[in-house]
Amino acid sequence: MILTSDDVDDIIRILDSSFYDELRIKTDTFDLYLRRSPAGWTQETHTLSPPHMIGEAGAEAAPTIAAAKAAEPVEAEIDGVTAVRTPMGGAFYRAPKPGAPPFVEVGDEVGEHTVIGIIETMKLMNSISAGVVGTVIEIRVPDGRLVEAEQVLMRIRRSGA
């Protein structure tokens, strides 16, 4: 990535007039792999230089979602109880907007299409439905918390179960 796009073009022009089908250039700071494919030349780059961090901040890793997931207990399947999982990672919101009452509380009856929360992923708001008819018995994730795909958000006791 220290090479400019013009540099890469020049290298490819040279390769074009050669018998070579691939070229790897590796330095301390980058690794560039060029290859001739049926659709033309392709490039793969690895930036090898580490970040030059300023200040003490950043020494600690980001509070990753993975940590939250690791802490999650192994889910024992309980008869008649459905775990509502998020199909995607993101931020979980229990209410339609800050300050508004939550979509559902423990003890609420829900239907298949009842919205139980919102997952904000990549600037898009995705509503999450209960998926089953029943009663909310546990809310696993607090408002505003980051979740990973397939993480359990709530548990619902199915009606008639």
């Binding site: 930036t47 230089s49 970040p51 961090m53 300023i54 950043g58 890793a61 980001a62």
Partner: peptide
């Protein structure tokens, strides 16, 4: 100097810039 949130400290811009500084949590 590139500003990076905690989610971007290891991203390509942070590796390419002369210096990187953390400016806060991911959101």
């Amino acid at each position: 100097v590139v500003a990076a949130s905690e989610a971007d400290l290891d991203a390509v811009p942070a590796r390419l810039a002369d210096r990187t500084i953390c400016i806060g949590p991911p959101r």
